[in-house]
Write a protein that binds this DNA or RNA. Structure first.
Lengths: 227, 227
DNA sequence: ACCTGAACACCGTTCAAGT
DNA sequence: ACCTGAACACCGTTCAAGT
């Protein structure tokens, strides 16, 4: 999935005079990596143009020679993040299993980047060749399983919607459903909550497993979508 | 669903001397409504403390006598928005149909408030009695259908995750999947896309219908979750 | 008790000036 | 071509001062 740097092209480093502390020669790759490191270290609240500039020992305005806006910078991050989704499974597994394996890596990858989710949900894929390749593999998986053409995109988007929502859910506090001062007024929900808690599994994980099985089963299980 | 103002309590207006233009007497209700109107008119980009203050003819700092932060103000909006979700259907319809009707109103209500979604996904429900009541009705619907206690919360959260993701999806541009310069390189996906487009239905709607049927069918259809 | 106005500590972004 | 430093137009929030 990850595209490695080709060892054939030596990526010639611009030589730097020694002895003098100097600022880095900026480019897209460098800025994107610095931004990603910042996010990984301090979360999205720490992702500021100033912060990125500082981590590169450069003035904030210097960044604008290479990136149009913070929004574009976030799209660069999004591409790197999406690169972590494994869609090779569609080449080796039957559709239902492939979808489940794909969804698991997809959710895990997004869970650490929740602020990107509203962006990804809305971002045209045209700018991200790798994301398009992912869709190609997923679509090919559906086609190979005999799906009717017109049903494929809705099915993909449906599962993706579930994945996005589930990834948001991962970031919720464990006690999100605690009724607080309203305890006792909502008996049915409280007993359901207590029973779920007794299982020991975080509700986000239980929900993801339950929902994934349900939606994939509901989509792939019934045969009325084949032509 | 909406809690009406009780006509018994006359909500005595503080009398205002006539002739002099004066600023409003602030309270939570007034601020929340002003904020909601601002959002409805100009979207979430226009929701600023200054903007709310201006619409109330008051200085921005005055708001902080009534609300702790912009975050809290957004929670007030969230409560009003969630009040639009119809969960009475669980009292009248069989579980599967109730879930689908509930999901439809839920997604429609959220679609106009996408920036709230990451907030709602993470917000403890304890602060919002109405939301808790919603969960009680949904849980009661599952219980009435004979569901095992421990399975109910995961099922609810799973459907909610799908709804959240689908609501985000509504705000995506219609041509989000346009391959742009990569046209031709992803044949399987492109033909699936063309076939879907030919149906005339926006892909977000098609995906929501497809996915909702699948997840509800996958959850409620198979009988192995009853005790 | 509650409002004003000034101030603070930030944002993202632009732009003339330098090299 | 690309970086710096100053500046701009905002943010949310705090706080002394007034009534």
């Amino acid at each position: 999935m990850n595209v490695k740097q080709e060892p054939g092209s030596p990526a010639r480093e611009p030589r730097r005079r020694a002895g003098r502390p100097r600022s880095v020669v900026l480019d897209r790759e460098l800025i994107a990596q610095a931004a990603l490191k910042l996010v990984t270290t301090g979360g999205y609240a720490s992702l500021t143009m100033s912060g990125v500039a500082k981590s590169l020992s450069v003035s904030p305005s210097a960044l604008y020679n290479h990136v149009e806006s913070k929004q574009e910078l976030m799209q660069w991050i999004q591409e790197i993040v999406m690169d972590g989704v494994d869609s090779t499974v569609f080449e080796t597994l039957p559709l239902a299993e492939a979808l489940m394996a794909w969804a698991v890596t997809y959710r895990d990858v997004l869970a650490g980047h929740a602020p990107l989710i509203p962006l990804i949900a809305v971002l045209p894929v045209s700018g991200s060749p790798h994301t398009l390749e992912m869709y190609e593999k997923v679509a090919a998986g559906f086609a190979r399983a005999g799906w009717e053409s017109a049903q494929i995109v809705p099915a993909i988007v449906a599962i993706e919607s579930f994945i996005f929502g589930s990834a948001l859910d991962v970031t919720a506090p464990l006690d999100i459903f605690d009724p607080g001062p309203n305890a006792g007024k909502i008996p049915k929900f409280e007993s359901a909550l207590a029973a779920q808690r007794a299982s020991g599994q975080p509700s986000a994980d239980a929900a993801f497993n339950t929902g994934l099985r349900a939606i994939v089963g509901g989509l792939v299980g019934s045969g009325d979508r084949r032509h």
